[in-house]
């Protein structure tokens, strides 16, 4: 089992797509820094009476592009093998299907976390550094207070990558798996936001992108789920599709 996990790790770091994804993530972090600089610049340019009070935080803005990166990472973890046919070479040298698939989980999850956590943290810290002590909501939470939300967001990105991996196994096509993952991660939250109250927040908070907010919500604030059910549901977004993928993968002809 260690051999096949180690082989997965080698596969991941010997293709250029992994490094391109990392580079893309870094560019997105820099774009959020540019956003923060723009917020600071606008604040400085306004007269004392007309200051802006609220702006989107960089750790919020980074999420959508990072969701795309996570979905691509997870999808390519298997669809690259179907597209090139290397899946058959892989299953010839390691015929145990379940462990072949499960070996991908720690590698995809690890790579997603290794990209997401520093990336989200960097977006946050650069934002605070650039805006400084200007009193703008979205840039005022101290790191100690924001840390649980940042970690929860990074974990959501790990779940997104694993969900995309599972979809990739099931549909065997990068386009199909990405379309499915991005529908869930980017399209449905937008649709949910347009539902009549209270369904907008009810639906939005049980989607993967809403769950980090549910997990870190203050205990007294009103919401749909408690932190523990929200955390369980977030894990289920990875576990259930992976279980379905495993069931298909062990039976299907390669």
């Amino acid at each position: 089992m260690i051999g096949v996990v180690s082989a997965e790790w080698l596969k991941l770091r010997t293709v250029r797509s992994t490094y391109l994804l990392l580079a893309a993530a870094a560019v997105f972090v820099l774009l959020t820094a540019a956003w923060s600089a723009n917020v600071a610049h606008i604040w400085d340019g306004r007269p004392a009476g007309g200051k802006i009070h609220t702006a989107a935080s960089p750790e919020y803005l980074i999420m959508a592009p990072f969701e795309v990166c996570a979905a691509v990472l997870g999808t390519l973890g298997i669809t690259a093998e179907y597209a090139t046919g290397t899946i058959r070479a892989g299953l010839t040298v390691w015929p145990r299907r379940l462990t072949y698939l499960m070996a991908k989980v720690p590698v995809v999850a690890g790579a997603a976390l290794a990209g997401a956590l520093p990336g989200v943290l960097a977006a946050f810290l650069l934002g605070r550094l650039i805006v400084g002590d200007r009193p703008i909501n979205g840039f005022r939470t101290p790191l100690g207070e924001a840390a649980p939300a940042l970690v929860a967001s990074a974990l959501m990105l790990v779940v997104a990558a694993l969900l995309a991996l599972a979809l990739g196994v099931i549909v065997r096509s990068a386009a199909g798996a990405l379309a499915g993952a991005l529908t869930l991660l980017l399209v449905l939250p937008g649709v949910a936001a347009h539902l009549p109250a209270p369904w907008d927040s009810r639906v939005g908070s049980v989607l993967p992108t809403g769950l980090p907010g549910e997990i870190t919500r203050a205990p007294d604030a009103a919401g749909t789920l408690g932190p523990v059910p929200a955390a369980v549901l977030l894990a289920a977004y990875a576990v259930v599709p992976l279980a379905a993928a495993a069931a298909v993968f062990v039976r299907r002809d390669a």
Binding site: G3, A7, L10, K11, T14, W94
Partner: peptide, 12 residues
């Protein structure tokens, strides 16, 4: 070499 290396690693 990397293509062979990942195949090889599965079997130690």
């Amino acid at each position: 070499a990397d293509h062979l290396a990942w195949l090889a690693r599965t079997n130690g």
